[in-house]
Write a protein that binds this DNA or RNA. Structure first.
Lengths: 225, 225
DNA sequence: TAGATTGTTAATCGATTAACAATC
DNA sequence: TAGATTGTTAATCGATTAACAATC
């Protein structure tokens, strides 16, 4: 009598979910009604097998001989991604990055509403970014709990990031989206997603140089083998 | 006589390189002279085996009985990542995001110098963002070629992204760092690195909801097996 | 030399792909 | 019904981990 064993979904699968979601959204726009794993895979560059395996991690959404109903599948994936309920966010740090993020209307379109920014700089506390108020950092705990904020966006300099997370740990926040270039830590009740821009830039830089490396390695291997 | 076969480095390895780089940089700061794969792995959460396998993709940087020289390894990885030469960048799109990125001094610290921003809005063309000039989009081809720009950052709305890439394809640009939420396409001579912020946010949202799903699946599995 | 730790080969693990019976 | 396409099991592939001889 094995107790409900939790088969964890691999990160690779999870990272593909937004791709499915986006693709299905576009198909929906084009009034496509049904789609096969074959065709969906073709568009996204996945194999039909992978599409079916991925989706079957979450349920049986298709129908033999028919394929998947685009609208239904879109909704199911939205549900899986938690996009069926509204999320309330705050942005901590109202510098350039914080303001840029606050200016992004895409988030709101998908149900992520930015309720406030927080900063310590008295020069900007009290101002607004596109209707969104900038409050004093000292009020953040109260605000987050009172307004049932789900997600905090960390847009402060690397030195302040961990201390902000520690403050947030005292609230009912459930997720942290971290833009500071440090690996921040919090209790297991808070989910952290890191956006490491420098890592991404370095990866680009690596790939721009790759051919040089490959040559060197080819020579080296030639000697050895 | 197999011709120099190119053993491609997997993306998983490449994405770990910036982590090694950062960690070694911090060790260097602390004047640590040597480190074993064991200890390096412990800090980063990798196995010693993985550390050695990763590094041996690029060369033999260690020494039996000693480990790795921190400074030397740091420099080698910097070289692999292409951080030993300066890169010149332009940012296309001088809206909030473009300005935020232009304000990030971290890039410059690692040798990525932002030379100019480009926009079509006459209201901001001619202005400056922290000493960096904003030029008219029509001059971008000339500017990129004349100043030997390596990398273009795409910070325009999704609708303009592909058209900007098409323009850049006529230049000598080598890499594109794309912040627009679309999969842009270019010739194989240009490397593209996508930063899909929405995907990252959706992944966070998924993981915040995961426990709910796991329960449902556990029940479902209970029935089936 | 003895101890430590690498580079590298072999074993394991997990994720992707292929195959196919089930079924719409 | 016949054709299509799923859900799922089996095979393959690739990446991670373990083991160990080489060697500093």
């Amino acid at each position: 009598m094995a107790p409900d064993e939790i088969k964890r979904i691999s990160l690779a699968v999870i990272r593909r979910l937004p791709k499915y979601h986006k693709c299905l959204g576009e198909l929906l726009q084009k009034n496509v009604e049904r789609i096969s794993s074959q065709e969906l895979g073709r568009i996204l560059g996945f194999t039909a097998s992978q599409v079916r395996q991925d989706l079957n991690n979450f349920g049986e959404f298709g129908q033999q001989g028919y394929g998947y109903n685009v609208k239904q599948l879109y909704n199911e994936i939205a549900k899986i991604l938690g996009l069926n309920t509204e999320h309330k966010m705050v942005i901590v740090g109202a510098g350039k990055l914080g303001q840029a993020l606050a200016g992004y209307t895409d988030f709101e379109r998908h149900g992520f509403k930015i309720m406030a920014l927080f900063d310590i700089d008295p020069k900007i506390v009290g101002s607004k970014v596109r209707d969104i108020p900038v409050y004093d950092m000292k009020d953040i705990i109260y605000f987050v709990n009172e307004n049932e904020i789900d997600i905090a966006v960390i847009a402060v300099p690397r030195e302040r990031a961990q201390e902000v997370v520690d403050i947030l740990s005292k609230t009912l926040i459930k997720g942290i989206w971290n833009f500071a270039p440090v690996e921040v830590k919090a209790g297991s009740n808070i989910i952290i997603e890191n956006v490491h821009l420098l890592d991404s830039l370095f990866t680009l830089s690596y790939r721009m140089n790759e051919s040089k490396w490959m040559e060197r390695l080819a020579r080296k291997d030639g000697k050895k083998r």
